[in-house]
């Protein structure tokens, strides 16, 4: 289990800090989606979080570049189609891996459990279908 488990704990720590201090659920698709409309002071926490993700990524890339030793071997067509599906789908379904998974499952939300099983199932089927082509 090693690093994935440790990483999961650190991710959960980030969402626990957010809920404990700010009273907010850390749903990344919701945060990104809401930050896209007209800027208001109410949305500062959302911009701050998104900037934090980038800063965290930059720090990690400097300190542990080996964590980013992988190929991004996808076509632009795949990136565009997947992007539209992920963007539209997470908003229609009110959440992604963070909101429904990391934050929804521990709240024992049946809605989040159904969403998590559905997107994981859809991901598994998509990978299966693509393995034939």
């Amino acid at each position: 289990m090693g690093l994935p488990f440790l990483g999961g704990i650190i991710i959960a720590l980030a969402t626990t800090i957010m809920l404990f201090f700010n009273g907010r659920i850390t749903g990344i698709s919701g945060i990104l989606g809401n930050s896209l409309s007209k800027p208001t002071s109410e949305k500062r926490w959302q911009y701050s979080f998104l900037i934090g993700l980038i800063i965290g990524g930059a720090i990690l890339l400097q300190l542990s570049p080996q964590l980013f030793q992988f190929e991004i071997n996808f076509s632009y067509q795949e990136a565009i189609i997947a992007g539209l599906l992920v963007g539209f789908g997470t908003r229609l379904g009110s959440g992604c891996t963070s909101g429904h998974g990391v934050c929804g499952l521990p709240r024992l939300s049946v809605r989040s459990l159904v969403a998590t099983l559905t997107f994981m199932g859809a991901g598994i089927i998509t990978v299966l279908i693509r393995s034939f082509s």
Binding site: I28, G57, A122, R130
Partner: peptide, 28 residues
């Protein structure tokens, strides 16, 4: 909405292997 949205998200995730958080982090 919940089901269809989650199916679309899962399909996109299966194509590209990145959900929203990792995609934003990988911008670096």
């Amino acid at each position: 909405k919940l089901i269809l949205g989650s199916i679309m998200f899962g399909a996109g995730w299966g194509i590209i292997g990145m959900c929203p958080g990792p995609a934003i982090v990988n911008l670096v």
